[in-house]
Each structure stands twice: as structure tokens, then as C-alpha cells.
Lab assay of single mutants.
Amino acid sequence: VKVYLPNKQRTVVTVRDGMSVYDSLDKALKVRGLNQDCCVVYRLIKGRKTVTAWDTAIAPLDGEELIVE
């Protein structure tokens, strides 16, 4: 899953069964001094942002793009 992060940064996270968006992005956010409490995650669908819950399973999102703001 390709993830666009604040400050024009981006990362790619590996999809693993049983993991949530929260778990999958935890390290990427912490390395950048961010956490899930201060950010909102969106799914990018056909160029439009849709709010996605942090506890959403990451497996069904394989191949999609997320935006964290």
C-alpha cells in the first residue's frame, strides 16, 4: 500500500493479514515524529479522499493508496 504522509513524504507498507491500518503505519509515523492521535487517514479512490478508520483491516486495501494528514 502506497501512503502519502505529511510534509510531502511517502512510504510503502507491506500488507499482512490480521493487521490494521494503525498497526501497519505505526513505525512509519513514529520515525517521522507523528502518531495516529494527531492524524487522519484517507483512502484515495479515483482521485477523491474518503476518511478511513485507523482500525480498518489493511489486507483488503492491498494495491490502494492512502493519505495521512
Rank of each mutant, 00 (worst) to 15 (best):
T56S: 13
Q9T: 09
V13F: 02
L61N: 06
K2R: 14
D55L: 01
D55R: 07
Q36D: 04
K2A: 08
V51I: 15
K49Y: 03
Q9W: 05
V1C: 09
K49A: 05
D55P: 02
L34R: 00
D62T: 11
D23Y: 02
Y42L: 00
R16S: 12
P60V: 12
K30P: 00
L29T: 02
V15C: 13
D55E: 11
T50E: 05
L25D: 03
V31F: 09
R16C: 13
L34F: 12
V40Q: 15
V21R: 01
T11A: 10
C38L: 09
Q36C: 09
D23G: 06
V12T: 11
Y22Q: 14
C38H: 13
C38N: 15
V41Q: 02
V41C: 10
I45L: 11
G63Y: 06
T52C: 10
V15W: 11
V12W: 12
V15N: 06
V13T: 01
D62P: 11
V12D: 07
R16F: 09
I58D: 01
W54Y: 03
K8H: 11
I58F: 13
K46V: 02
T56L: 08
L5P: 02
S20D: 07
I45P: 00
E69K: 04
G18E: 08
Q9H: 04
E64K: 07
E69I: 02
N35S: 14
V68D: 13
V40R: 10
K46W: 03
D26R: 14
C39P: 02
E65T: 13
A28Y: 08
D23F: 12
G33M: 13
V31A: 15
D37P: 03
V21F: 06
I45E: 08
E65A: 12
Y4H: 14
K8Q: 13
Y22F: 12
S24H: 00
E69F: 01
G63N: 08
S24R: 01
I45D: 11
Q9F: 05
K2C: 15
A59K: 12
I45R: 11
C38G: 14
C38A: 13
D23N: 07
T50R: 09
I45K: 15
Y42M: 03
Y22R: 15
E65Y: 07
L29Q: 01
G18W: 04
A28T: 09
S24F: 06
Y4G: 03
V41P: 04
T56I: 05
V15F: 13
V51R: 13
C39L: 11
T50P: 03
L61I: 09
D55V: 03
G63E: 05
Y42T: 04
G18P: 03
E64G: 08
A28G: 02
E69N: 03
L44P: 02
D17C: 06
A59N: 06
S20E: 01
G63R: 02
T14V: 10
K49E: 02
D17I: 08
R48D: 08
N35P: 03
V13S: 00
Q9K: 12
R10Q: 14
L34E: 05
D55S: 09
D26A: 15
L61Q: 11
C38F: 10
L25Q: 00
C39I: 03
Y42K: 05
E69A: 05
V51A: 11
T11R: 03
E69M: 03
E64Y: 08
K2T: 14
N35G: 10
Y4E: 10
G18L: 01
D55M: 04
V51Y: 08
K30G: 06
D37M: 05
I67N: 07
W54D: 03
T52A: 09
V13P: 03
V1L: 12
L34S: 02
R48C: 06
D17G: 11
V12E: 12
Y4I: 13
K49D: 02
D62W: 06
A28Q: 05
V15S: 09
V51D: 03
K49V: 01
M19C: 11
K49H: 04
G33K: 06
E65K: 10
G47V: 02
T52M: 15
A59C: 09
G18D: 10
Q9D: 14
K46Q: 13
G63D: 09
K46T: 06
R16V: 10
K46N: 15
D17E: 13
K27R: 12
E69R: 04
R32M: 15
L25A: 01
C39R: 00
A53Q: 12
M19K: 08
L5C: 02
K8L: 06
T52S: 04
M19Q: 14
V12Y: 14
G63M: 08
D23A: 09
V15I: 11
K8W: 06
S20T: 13
R48S: 07
L44I: 15
T56M: 11
Q9M: 10
Q36E: 05
V21G: 00
G63C: 12
A53D: 13
E64Q: 14
V3P: 00
T11V: 14
K8Y: 08
D37I: 06
A59S: 14
K2Y: 07
R32A: 15
Q9I: 10
A53V: 04
V3A: 03
G47Q: 06
T52K: 06
R32Q: 14
K2V: 10
D62Q: 14
L61K: 10
K2D: 06
N7I: 01
M19L: 10
L5V: 01
R16W: 06
D23V: 06
A53P: 14
G18R: 06
L44V: 11
R43K: 09
Y22W: 12
K30W: 00
A53E: 15
I58N: 02
N7Q: 08
T14A: 12
R10S: 15
V21K: 05
I58G: 03
V12Q: 09
V15Q: 03
G47Y: 01
T14Q: 14
V13R: 02
K46S: 12
V12K: 11
R48M: 09
G63S: 11
K30N: 05
I45W: 11
L34G: 00
D26I: 10
V21H: 00
G33V: 04
P60C: 08
L25I: 04
K2H: 03
R10T: 15
S24W: 06
R32C: 10
Y4P: 00
V40D: 00
Q36Y: 09
C38M: 15
K46H: 08
G47L: 01
V41I: 05
A53L: 05
R43H: 12
V31Y: 07
L34C: 04
M19V: 12
Q36N: 04
T14L: 09
P60A: 15
R43Y: 02
L5A: 03
G63K: 03
Y4L: 15
K30I: 04
E69S: 05
E64P: 03
A59Q: 13
R48K: 15
E65I: 11
E65G: 07
L29P: 00
R10W: 15
T52R: 05
V41H: 04
D17M: 10
V51H: 10
G18S: 08
T52E: 07
R32G: 07
A59L: 12
V40G: 02
L61M: 14
R48V: 14
L5R: 00
D62Y: 07
I58T: 03
R10H: 14
P6H: 03
V51E: 10
A53I: 00
D17R: 11
I45N: 05
K2E: 06
V1N: 03
Q36K: 14
L25K: 04
V15Y: 04
E65C: 10
G18F: 04
A28P: 10
L29E: 00
L25R: 01
V51W: 14
C39A: 05
E64R: 03
L34T: 00
V15T: 10
P6Q: 06
N35A: 09
K49Q: 04
V3R: 02
V51L: 14
A28W: 06
R16M: 09
V12F: 08
L61A: 09
A53K: 12
C39V: 10
T14P: 13
V31C: 11
L44C: 03
P60D: 15
G18Q: 07
R48T: 12
D62S: 14
D17F: 11
R10P: 07
P60R: 12
D62V: 15
L44W: 12
D26G: 11
D55C: 05
L29A: 01
N35C: 12
G18K: 12
I58M: 13
V40A: 13
D17W: 07
P60Y: 14
Y42G: 02
L5T: 01
L5S: 02
G63H: 04
I45T: 07
R10L: 12
V41G: 01
L25E: 01
V13G: 00
K49M: 08
R43Q: 11
V31S: 15
G18Y: 04
Q9S: 11
N35D: 10
G18C: 08
D37L: 04
D17H: 07
G47A: 05
R10A: 10
L61T: 08
V3D: 02
V31Q: 13
